[in-house]
Design a protein around this nucleic acid. Structure first.
Lengths: 335, 335
DNA sequence: TTGTACGCGTTATCAT
DNA sequence: ATGATAACGCGTACAA
């Protein structure tokens, strides 16, 4: 009897010894985790749903840091982490979610309509969502995206810039990259993209810059190469923007590269601002002015919420984590 | 009866409809994954054992890329990924491994003696090891570390360098950072560290450089900051090395930083060579000369092996993936 | 084509 | 303190 394994104190050590001994001689390697889970109704694992294939996921430093914060929390409580990669639908396939052995799910930056979320609801699993979407009945951790974007825009405005370009990641989950038409700017299903873009444009408008005069490029993902592509387009408009607002550091790094490609000097010819403040923003050339969000804290917070939900807690009111502007060397007053 | 879910063709569509209908009205969300696993004896998941907390793990780009390659393979076969973070023992705690719901394990660069490996053996789970250690009965994917290190050393020798410093990651699993004594260079339990260090020293010796005259710094991990620390020490020896051999790109980036700290110019004052060829090596300042290993391929290969073992295959003979030297701008002839 | 009963390996409860 | 036994929810072989 496996009391020997789980409650060593409930039985005499002699018996315990004898049991363990025979077990060993029989080649028994301890309780089977699956059977235990069935009996216990708990698999001691938290599921993590990604917006894209693990492929893209691990190359995003921001995600890595969040995952890290989450992992350390969860691991400290003897829970394991089950990763569920997403596909082109902007989240894991429902079948993956239905079959995942986890007793709480964490959704990371999924589109409003991700089928994976229905699957979670169908199973009745508690859910923590990071960033987006907002979903009734789920716990949530988000950051002040609109404010962050405002900070970046205000800063450039104060520096005297009046000609801008905006580089954003997906506005719509259709995998399209390109200049953003007027209509595409409305009804954006990704809250984060919506808030950041809104933060930029609202603030610029307050500063007297007509949103219609601001070229916006939408990259279908948040990687460096896509950023380079978009920035090249932005930097070849007339008049050439003297400042670029980028929705992520990765995109901003791409913009730095694009500027080099065009023989422009940052920040003399063009200022660039990112969003996230990943570690590399310190090392880039030049070091990146960016909006800092507490990435590790975001992950930890999500982990704690997951554990809390697991313990039967109710989802608390979502709070939004702070952001702040970090000034480095990729920005300068307009000349 | 859940035949309705799993073999739609085995029963009339009318019955199937009726079953699904009642199921829905009863609030039934489909087969329970745990119970299914118990009955099936398969959890459709591959476990991934990390040498350190997920914390450090995700900040290592090389690991991310490997994980990515593995994930895409595994995901394509409808398996999920269970991450098992390691702790100070250089691998996951045995209890985590014993309880993990996975039917094949992948070990990533674990020390020879990791307790986690015993736990895997105890459960009788098939095992794929990446890099190290070598373990009878397990499938393995490794790269030509010794050769790679030789390439780097030869290259510097050809450039005319004769005064070297070596920056390596852990030689022994005791979390020690510092200059490496003579005795600590022997009986190194990490195969990768052993091979790379050996590759450097052997080749240098053939080029007429006495190993005893080459200062070696051991960093207790492979991150930039530890690299910076070690490189500072190496670059303040007398005579100052004109070339630094680094066991990873992360360490090399730290070395680049250390050189800047000391107002030295790379490669004019000192040449730096890394190992891995992570994407950032292209963007660093200056771009890094390094030894390329096929990281994504390594992950894919591991995934395929895991799937193969799962299907009952025998572990094939390990093959070693190719390496090659990538020349960029962090190296120059000795002046 | 449809229904039934047993086994998967635990945990937990209850009787001894 | 120890031993027996009923769930846990599924797949599946087999009977109807």
């Amino acid at each position: 009897m496996s009391n020997a394994y789980n409650r060593p104190d409930q039985l005499s050590s002699s018996l315990r010894e004898r049991i363990l001994e025979t077990a060993r001689s029989l080649g028994y390697a301890g309780p089977d985790p699956v059977a235990r889970s069935l009996a216990t109704r708990s698999s001691a694992a938290v599921g993590f749903m990604l917006p894209q294939g693990l492929s893209g996921a691990f190359s995003d430093p921001a995600l890595s840091i969040v995952l890290d914060g989450l992992a350390s929390t969860v691991d400290g409580h003897d829970h394991s982490l089950v990763l569920m990669p997403g596909d082109s639908t902007g989240g894991p396939r429902p079948s993956i979610v239905s079959r995942a052995q986890a007793d709480v799910m964490v959704a990371y930056s999924l589109p409003d309509s991700a089928p994976a979320l229905d699957a979670v609801a169908a199973r009745g699993l508690p859910l923590v969502v990071i960033d987006q979407p907002v979903l009734p009945g789920s716990a949530r951790v988000e950051v002040q995206d609109h404010l962050g974007a405002s900070l970046a825009a205000s800063f450039l405005l104060e520096l005297g810039h009046s000609s801008f370009g905006i580089l954003t990641f997906s506005l719509h989950p259709d995998g399209v990259s390109g200049p953003v038409s007027h209509e595409r700017r409305s009804a954006v299903p990704f809250r984060v993209s919506r808030d950041r873009l809104g933060g930029y444009l609202d603030t610029l408008a307050k500063g007297g810059v007509q949103p219609d005069n601001v070229p916006v490029w939408e990259a279908r993902g948040s990687d460096r190469e896509l950023g380079r592509l978009g920035a090249r387009w932005l930097l070849t408009r007339t008049p050439r923007p003297s400042a670029l607002l980028c929705a992520s550091d990765q995109l901003a790094f791409g913009a730095l590269q694009a500027a080099r490609d065009l023989a422009l000097t940052v920040p003399r010819d063009v200022s660039v601002v990112g969003f996230d403040d990943v570690p590399e923003a310190t090392y880039s050339d030049p070091p990146l002015t960016t909006v800092r969000q507490p990435l590790a804290e975001k992950g930890r917070r999500a982990g704690e919420l997951a554990l809390k939900l697991l313990a039967g807690g109710r989802p608390p009111r979502p709070t939004r984590l702070d952001v702040s502007l970090v000034q480095r060397a990729s920005t300068a007053p307009r000349t």
